[in-house]
Design a protein around this nucleic acid. Structure first.
Lengths: 230, 230, 230, 230
DNA sequence: GATGAATGAGTTTTCATTCAT
DNA sequence: GATGAATGAAAACTCATTCAT
């Protein structure tokens, strides 16, 4: 993972090119970016890029690998500190937004470019993205076990629900050029998720109703096997 | 909008090319698709395409405009039949999923390709997507006025929240090649939205708590002006 | 074989490019020739070449195919008129030299470029060249049956012997830039072959010796199976 | 000739690189070979090659010069032992085949690569190849003086005839990957040459005819000045 | 309007050669 | 002398777009 010199140390140039690529891809998009743009941004010759990367595709893949690896490790560290699923979900939302807020260019690449459907990327996305989605999935499962989250929803649906909603907010922020404060929305988003997912146990803290409490509509939801799983 | 002959009637070839483009873009992606691929798929000569479209970009833009126009009109028709925001939201989710289920190739293009950040597309997305997002936004506003939806959440956040979550589910379905039944999730998604957004009035139907009902956390949410709006 | 338009007629451009390629390859060699050189020589745009040929290699292969086909058909026609192996061999030498004399550039390509060892070419050469060598081989076999040529020499050796000797003379002529008259050597070469290959029956017309005639050394030649055959 | 250190001694690395180049060129051809391939094969750094050779071309030229020098000196030694032109020609054929049999890779380079017509190589070939051809030419001349070989054939033609025929046999052997026993053909080839070239005096040992012996056709061969000479 | 052959600008990629260490 | 990372010129090839028919 990463390009290492004989000492096994990641080389400076490799990082420089990768960072330049993030910047360039973020600005112009993968297909609109020229390898020479990346070279110029990195301050190296065009040919140098091919010492560190097999080809242009490999750069994008490497960004994904490299950055996802870092991102996931950050998430795992953060989530380890959460006590229960509720706090973990709040943390997750917070870290996700914060991470992208701190790396807007990376966000742009990850959010926008990796959506592209070139065949190789689809395959790629599947593997790496799955690990990311599973971070959410694990929280959801834990929440269901702890009795915080409804059990009548398939985890595979919920994790994508959460991911998609966050994704869109970040995309909006990226598209806006970072004009608004992304973190302002962290609590609201966590809240939307928790209310949406929450069991009575959770909602009691929200609702003051003394009604008899009808069976939630969703109680009738009945997901058969063989459903969603990318 | 659309290519019309002297009678103002949309020509058959125009439609043929547009449909071919949807198919081709869906399969290979915009940048990986050749104009000649579209021509072959449409059964016309390469040059013919340039009679109906200014250039390759224009084809994608036209797909967006054309299809969005149709989609939005369908939505408006459907939503007109909804009584209140709750039923409208349910309808919206249902129609959205159903529309894409019926046009998987169109879904692929709209979901995947239009995510690309080529400059021209960003501009276009803004305009057309805005109208789509506003359909959701209007429902949310109505819901807030009717007392079904919390007022402490900015509509701009909520509409993107809803759009993003639906978007991701559809993307998953597209990526899976339509393997699972998209409509199975309509109710669950509506439910997640409604619970997340719902006021006490709504949640009463869900929660049976007889507690005094703590102030919802989200009560403290306070979004200043100048926030999110793409 | 050849590039044909919808009427099945070989297109003019295809021929123009092929001829230009012969000229350019002859002058600078395959690897030293630029596709743009060929395009300029042919008076077409670079891209046009790729309408008629898959790639640069394909041009060389096509020259070989195309010209070899023509050459072999000329040979077959000429040889059909020969009465016996002796006259056929003379004809073969004459036609071979004459053909290249008339197409010095083609000679240069066939003689020099096709000697190159790129893997694909090796395979190619084998097939096409074999047919050419077999033209000689057939004459030799016929001569052996007619009693003109010694039977103690493997046809596979002899055909290459003849080909190699002619080849080198032509190469010399090509290298010299066509300075000497190639046809002047036709009879001498035929003579060298016929004497070398000839049986007593043939040599009687040459030698006036009344000696007892020792068994020719070559009588002891004994070629085992599994020898030369490319 | 050769790279010498301050002591005038050829350095070990120079030889290592040259041998590596022979191997690499033989396998992939000059233009398909990378300088780095040679470096790897030689076990040195890319840059080291440029200490011993001016550039890539210079490596090929050096192979030719170096190996030709050795080959020619071997030939001269061997030929010195021949008594007359007949035995010398037999020796020449034998040594030629044997030399290449023992150095198949060198053979591949000399046979195949030097056929390429890059401008620089043409010049080189001329000089070095001439010395080689002259070895044959000298034998032919001697044979003519000794009365063994016909005087009506230009030496320049005959030496190329001999060279070309041998060349092709070796090429076949090289192309076959050394599958057959090259030496098996030495006598047959010598025999073909000697019969082709031989005067009555020589052929008497071959033909037992007591006929009066018509004037050989070749008697009429009359080569004017200014003919073949590369 | 329709065609599709031709165009040539624009890109990726390669690799001989250099030069600081 | 030796290294090998860096260079950047050069070349094959692609494909959106044009335009004569």
């Amino acid at each position: 993972m990463g390009h290492k010199n004989s000492n096994g140390k990641r080389t400076e140039k490799y990082e420089k090119i990768l960072d330049a690529a993030v910047k360039v891809f973020a600005k112009k998009g993968f297909y609109q970016s020229r390898v020479s743009d990346i070279a110029r941004e990195a301050g190296v010759a065009d040919g140098t890029i091919y010492i560190y990367f097999k080809n242009k595709d490999d750069i994008l893949i490497s960004i994904f690998e490299e950055k996802m690896r870092i991102a996931i490790s950050i998430f795992q560290q953060e989530l380890a500190q959460g006590e229960n699923a509720l706090s973990k979900l709040r943390r997750f939302v917070h870290v996700h937004l914060d991470l992208f807020r701190q790396n807007p260019e990376l966000a742009a690449v990850l959010q926008v470019e990796l959506r592209q459907s070139s065949r190789f990327m689809k395959e790629y996305k599947k593997v790496e993205l799955k690990r990311f989605l599973d971070l959410i999935g694990d929280i959801v499962k834990q929440g269901q076990e702890e009795g915080f989250f409804r059990k009548d929803l398939p985890v595979s649906l919920v994790k994508r629900f959460v991911f998609g909603a966050l994704d869109e907010i970040i995309s909006t922020w990226v598209s806006s050029g970072g004009k608004f404060n992304l973190m302002d929305y962290a609590d609201a988003l966590s809240d939307l998720f928790i209310r949406g997912l929450g069991t009575v146990k959770v909602l009691e803290g929200v609702v003051d109703s003394s009604g008899e409490g009808g069976v939630p509509e969703s109680a009738s939801l009945d997901f058969k096997e063989g459903g969603m799983e990318l």
